[in-house]
Nucleic acid binder design. Structure first.
Lengths: 251, 251
DNA sequence: CGATCGTTTGATCCGCATCAAGATAGGTGG
DNA sequence: CCACCTATCTTGATGCGGATCAAACGATCG
């Protein structure tokens, strides 16, 4: 499939790529599609391409010997898939990547990427920044795993989803199954389910796949006001800015 | 304090820096010392420098509102301190850095670093690789937090120390206090202490600060043989290569 | 309409945190 | 050299959060 320059420029990573560089990139890459449930690559596969998601969502996970799935991340349109692996010294994939929904991805050969990284100096800068940001969020998440309760993590994640997808805080649908979200949060689906009950008192109501927030900042005895770790990830600030913006415009 | 080019070249990050670049870097940076227990910077401080450890060790940690210390990492000579922050968009430190022992560090102004990153293209490459590797290890550690028992994590960490410091597996002294190690592993010191007892059956004996390993690969019912996550970090392979090398050279 | 997948609810258990005391060791001053 | 102090480590008792196992429930689909 041939790629439009528009498609390329729609991706944050290549948003300000020059015409020449873009043309060269287009010649060396292609768009592939990955149906819901299909694997893009599996743990142990040889690393052949660097991927950027154009549409859809991918689950990055590992499988324990016991057959348990550990979800490391859920990536969406605009995200790059395996920057660490392209940059790092690995030759085989350390994780599995599977489509959460029908997806399409830009696939760039790793060899080409490694050879030409220097030419695209602004790209290298973006990758650097991207890695730095991801490192930061993974560190924050690791910290949350040990300092926050399951309920707090779920609450934070729901806010994060709301910001990330630009959903209306007063009502939106979960973009993934609850099982997947639980796995992403490294808790069991049973725990997740029970947690949702207790969140009702905190102004977060989930029925079926429908989520709605109430602004509880005044009566805030729960939430993560106590928890500097949660502040650190920046989601809280963004979330409340969102709430404020809405209340100004009415509703 | 003026810096010798030798000092610079001893750091992995600058090992293959050119004479000119080195001279320029020396003009713009300085060596500072940080006594045991002293803070290099604190959470909330403005980010002024990029640091590389020349000697000693630094604890990177955050403090919970409850006063509990969460150790994110313990960095040693050769490690860079705040790459993410220099590269990323932050303006204030998100964590505390405190000297575990008397240390000296190379301090490079952030502004200078940001301006000149492009000139040092091989440096940018190293930073990129460094970030990728760290991202990978933090992800693996996050995974271990939820899949491995405290005993398994301690065992892994002791092996890691052994490889990192090039200690003799048959007997070495812990480089940090047990309290610090426990904090680094995100477990309580009490749990750490109890864990050491149970590890005795697994061929790992710790008395006081003295550690010694027995090669249990044949009778290996415990360890992390079960756990692909542990394999992933590469420490196991390195550790056993070390054991094998020793046994070839006699004992 | 059965079959499969996702979700909820209940009962139970285990690992680790927490609280509370001792124990050990280094370091200091008398 | 001993008494004292403080920092670090160990040991014991207890409780809670979340994992695990089991089963019912709801929804979607061929």
């Amino acid at each position: 499939m041939t790629i439009a320059l528009e498609t390329l420029k729609a991706l944050p990573l290549f948003s300000d790529i020059s015409g020449d560089d873009g043309a060269m990139l287009i010649r060396n890459s292609r768009i592939i599609s990955c149906k819901r449930g299909k694997f893009l690559f599996m743990h142990g596969d040889k690393i052949t391409h660097f991927y950027v998601i154009c549409r859809g969502a991918m689950q990055i996970f590992r499988e324990t010997p016991g057959g348990h799935e550990i979800t490391n991340d859920i990536l969406i349109a605009g995200d790059s898939l395996n920057t660490e692996e392209v940059v790092g010294s690995q030759t085989v994939h350390a994780v599995n990547a599977r489509a959460v929904e029908d997806s399409s991805l830009l696939a760039i050969p790793v060899s080409w990427m490694r050879e030409n990284l220097k030419e695209f100096d602004h790209i290298a800068g973006k990758l650097l920044q991207n890695l730095a940001d991801r490192l930061h969020s993974v560190q924050v998440e690791a910290e949350q795993l040990t300092t926050m309760s399951a309920a707090q993590m779920v609450a934070c994640y729901l806010q994060k989803l709301c910001v990330l997808y630009d959903f209306d805080p007063h009502g939106f649908e979960l973009p993934y199954t609850k099982t997947l979200i639980a796995s992403r949060l490294r808790i069991e689906k049973e725990t997740f389910s029970r947690t949702l009950q207790t969140l009702r008192d905190q102004g977060i109501t989930v029925t079926g796949t429908h989520v709605s927030f109430k602004d509880m900042r005044k009566a805030d005895n729960f939430s993560c006001g106590e928890c500097s770790v949660a502040e650190e990830c920046g989601t809280h600030r963004l979330f409340y800015e969102k709430l404020d913006k809405l209340s100004v415009h009415g509703t």
